[in-house]
Simulated scan of single mutants.
Amino acid sequence: MPDGHRLVHDLLTAVAAGDPADHADASGDFEPRWVGSDNGITVRGLLWSACALDAAAAGAAVPAIATAATLGRAVDERAVNAAIDVLGRRGPPGEAALRELQRTVQGPPRRVRRIAAAIGP
């Protein structure tokens, strides 16, 4: 895997793993989340950069992208939407991840519709 692809993959993996110790909520308690107001734009850019990965790197990155789209732990809704849209562009591995999300999602109806639209006809 080329160095640039490895970097995108590793950063996506770090976003998916998250570190709850890094984010305190308003009451000072630490909460697990991946994306906050301080890095949402960066994470969305990183997710969209996954569209430029070659097939091997993209296949390796799909689990991290799918984790970022697991609709309940992300704070920035736009990052979740970007993850869903990127999965829709990643071919069969992305489509399989979207179908799994579609099967398990307990989110609002607009999110379910977005997943269905990303899967396509």
Rank of each mutant, 00 (worst) to 15 (best):
H9Q: 03
A17Y: 03
R44W: 13
A60G: 11
R73I: 01
I119M: 02
A74P: 05
A14R: 15
I119E: 03
A68L: 12
D22I: 03
A82I: 12
S37I: 10
I119V: 00
A96C: 11
D10Q: 06
G36Y: 10
P20H: 08
I65S: 00
Q102E: 06
R89Q: 13
V8C: 03
Q102N: 03
G4K: 12
W48E: 13
A55C: 04
G40S: 11
A16E: 02
L46V: 01
A55Y: 09
V62W: 14
D22Q: 06
G28S: 13
A68T: 14
V8F: 12
A21M: 08
E100Q: 13
P93H: 04
E95M: 00
G40K: 07
D85W: 05
L71R: 00
D25M: 10
P108H: 01
G40W: 13
D19N: 11
N81L: 13
V43R: 09
L11M: 06
H5F: 15
G107R: 04
S49K: 11
A79P: 09
R113G: 00
R99C: 08
C51Y: 08
V112Y: 03
A66S: 07
D38Q: 08
N81A: 14
G107S: 09
P2L: 14
P20V: 05
A61H: 08
G72P: 01
H9E: 00
G91N: 15
G72F: 00
A74D: 12
G91Y: 15
D29G: 04
G107W: 09
G94N: 06
R113V: 04
R99M: 09
S49V: 12
P63V: 02
S49A: 12
P92H: 11
M1N: 05
E31H: 00
T67F: 01
H9P: 00
T42E: 13
T104I: 11
